[in-house]
């Protein structure tokens, strides 16, 4: 009985991961690929880890699996947020049927340095911060 449950959980987890892979191939633009990926992969990994815990039946394995799952669930949105933002800033196109782009009002979609974008709205510090960033940029 337990064995059947473990096998079912393994198949469920693997199918969510397979669906994420089909999604990454099928979705029309980067942003939708990412929003498909994050969810399916986290859920799939959750099922695989649950199967692992049921299979080994040890408290040590269970706590490590929980820690790994929490780590993945915390970092997956962060990394997709980072890539999405970097992609938007570097001008990756949205799908042609996207209905509205309100972030365009903030960035105006033209090549512009990160520092200009970030510090344009708070005048008190903008000058020296911009200068400082430029300096580090040159050194880099």
């Amino acid at each position: 009985m337990m064995e059947i449950l473990i096998a079912a959980l393994l198949i469920l987890g693997a199918s969510f991961m397979l669906i994420a892979a089909i999604g990454i191939l099928k979705m029309p633009d980067l942003y939708m690929r990412m929003s498909v990926n994050t969810k399916s992969v986290t859920l799939g990994m959750g099922f695989l880890l649950l199967a692992l815990v049921l299979h080994f039946h040890e408290i040590g394995v269970a706590s490590r699996a929980l820690a790994t799952l929490v780590f993945i669930a915390m970092t997956a949105p962060i990394s997709s947020h980072l890539i999405g933002r970097a992609a938007y800033l570097s001008g990756v196109e949205l799908w042609s049927e996207t209905r509205r782009d309100e972030l365009g009002d903030l960035y105006q979609r033209r090549p512009m340095s990160m520092e200009q974008v970030l510090f344009s709205e708070n005048p008190p510090h903008s000058m020296d911060l911009e200068q400082e960033e430029k300096d580090t940029e040159d050194n880099f």
Binding site: A14, M17, A20
Partner: peptide
């Protein structure tokens, strides 16, 4: 086999992905 198929599909996206961020997403997967 299911996971291997998923790896192949993700690798196709890694190969054709038009921009660098697409490839990064494929790599993460």
């Amino acid at each position: 086999p299911m996971l291997s198929l998923a790896l192949v599909l993700a690798f196709i996206r890694l190969a054709i992905g038009p921009t660098l961020p697409d490839r990064v997403v494929a790599f993460e997967l």
